[in-house]
Design a protein around this nucleic acid. Structure first.
Lengths: 346, 346
DNA sequence: GAGGAATGGTTAAGCGCTAAACCTTCGGCC
DNA sequence: GGCCGAAGGTTTAGCGCTTAACCATTCCTC
């Protein structure tokens, strides 16, 4: 048999309610004396309250779901970026005495099921497409707090946290333009699906507009966010756009694939082609030369997500509050001025 | 108000118990008719049972904890290897209708607290030292099933899953010996702490013994499992053991750090020094040259852990059952015969 | 010295579910 | 035709906790 509230109450010679009040530090009328006595007993006996029971009685589970898309029978593929976020989210939640339930989502309906089933206080949506987030709107979700990371949906029921993707794209392009590059390729997934890519693309174009430089749509490479796809794109870039002297990729894995493809095509980095990535994952520092990339502060991002979530639960933040975090460019080894400075136009 | 069992029961004109029996597919005496009617109502109304309530009433939460060491206020640092395991564990658990609670553990006592608090059916211990696992023995853990991954503790209360580390070390060394290397360094953390490293080391030595080759203890480099530490070790190796023509590292990140250190010291890989890693993380294929490494089947490992866990819960597996999985050597670009074949002794 | 507010609790109802024990009805069997 | 067992349920008693409502003292205040 388990050690329960009642056992503690009996030993302390008080009612269960009092023990409950003490444990929850309630706005409770309990003498310091009684409180101490109870706490000592709890400590000595190693009493741990039953979370399911609390969950049931208090209608709050103190669990936050971490929901990640997963093809039906497939395992979650946690990118280094995602893995970093998960680790930091867990820390933040633990600090606030919340727990983290990790769950792959195959069908949209599962979101509601998980929320309801576990009585989740909230959930973090990681890696969903904007449209998927929007679709959640229809389902009644009660008053769980939802925070979508890296999405630009306008679901009025979800909080949002993302880094300043537009600025990230802009920084990358300005850097390359500043070095003297003009033929700069943009490699990333089709931006129709994800607002993140679209913002990065917009920022990229903005930098051209700001410096009055023309940009050729041909240099937009549509590529998956994978190493293999990046490598292929590198080969393609070398073959089809021999005049391109730089490329900005919307993810580091992609950038690293690009570097490999370029190398395979006999182009050197940054000698022949400069490369800028995005995310600043660990690997960016493991490749040679080290990858110049746009860094996000994962720590801040996770903290912001949790803060937003808890604020919302406390009735603070409005249901569609959003936070945008700063990014910065990590200058490393894969960018350099173009080998043969192009004749400055006009 | 929530939709509850009672609501369904009322609508179906039966008692709550019957609905419960239907939902749980119990050894229940329910007519096919009633069953169908109930299921249809459940479906139509979108009823989802409350997990905390079930947990409380059935004394089983259907949650498996994933416990990972975490320095007190620190976030979990999920290595690519760990991240891979997590993703696959989640999938396996989801298939069996279990849930995954991710929790960083700062103090040993937290293990028991989490287990008790959430009424966990079981837990996977990931990344703990053997001694820490052993210490769990003292705490009464009730009848949760514990499975330790990659540990060689002899706690009679924990299940175990690991890959064949001894064979991994042996494969690596045989490969290098077979190529003609004789001065082969071993780089890894002090093996006193973790049985995994000790097994890999034993296998490594075994290969020497089997081929009747002597090995010089000086070539044992004690290094942390990090990229930075690996880089340092690479520099040290080049400086202090200029005659070493190969090195086996107990982890890929370490191996990649080594490659960087060696390069910084002016040694080429595999020209001057061959390198073999361990784990076959994605990055192993992103570096140039691609890393020769010992691969574990993470998929199989995760599946084995879950199988063991559920078997144990069903009363099947003995409380200290263990599974050891095969490993294999991925031959890639970082190993080659030594440049100047050493004069074959005798 | 009586009324009101603190102070320090207690009681009781219930959160949503499960599971063991119990109750009917009915058909079959000798 | 009386008894048995199976089929198809229902009743009941919690699981361990929270929370609102209630009660009894004590302490001021005028």
């Amino acid at each position: 048999m388990h050690l329960t509230l009642k056992d503690i109450a009996a030993e302390a010679g008080v009612s269960a309610a009092t023990v409950s009040n003490v444990i929850n530090g309630n706005r409770a009328r309990v003498s310091a004396d009684t409180r101490d006595r109870i706490l000592r007993i709890v400590e000595r006996r190693g009493y741990v309250p039953s979370a399911p029971a609390r969950s049931l009685a208090a209608r709050s589970s103190r669990i936050i779901g971490l929901l990640v898309p997963a093809a039906d029978q497939d395992s979650l593929t946690l990118s280094p970026h995602t893995a970093g976020i998960i680790g930091m989210l867990e820390r933040e939640l633990r600090r606030h005495d919340y727990h983290l339930l990790l769950r792959g989502i195959a069908r949209p309906a599962e979101v509601t099921e998980v929320l309801r089933s576990w009585n989740l206080d909230g959930a973090v949506l990681l890696g969903f497409l904007d449209a998927e987030i929007d679709r959640l709107k229809r389902r009644s979700v009660g008053d769980v707090a939802l925070v979508a990371m890296d999405a630009y949906a306008d679901n009025p029921l979800t909080l949002g946290v993302r880094s300043d993707d537009r600025e990230g794209g802009r920084l990358a392009a300005r850097h390359l333009l500043g070095l003297g590059h003009r033929r700069i390729a943009f490699a990333g997934p089709a931006s129709s699906a994800t607002g993140v890519v679209r913002r990065r693309y917009e920022g990229f174009r903005l930098a051209f507009a700001e410096t009055g430089t023309a940009w050729d749509e041909d240099l937009r490479l549509t590529v998956d966010t994978t190493h293999a796809s990046g490598r292929e794109a590198g080969l393609r870039l070398a073959a089809e756009h021999p005049d391109a002297t730089a490329v900005f990729a919307t993810a580091d894995v992609l950038a690293i694939g690009l570097m490999e493809g370029l190398a395979a095509a006999g182009r050197t980095v940054p000698g022949d082609v400069s490369v800028v990535g995005y995310d600043d994952i660990d690997i960016a520092r493991y490749v040679a030369p080290k990858l110049t990339t746009v860094a996000q502060d994962l720590q801040a991002k996770s903290a912001a997500a949790v803060r937003l979530l808890l604020d919302r639960l406390a009735g603070g933040a409005p249901p569609d509050a959003a936070v945008t975090l700063d990014v910065r460019l990590m200058l490393r080894g894969t960018t350099a001025p173009p080998r043969t400075p192009e004749p400055t136009s006009r």
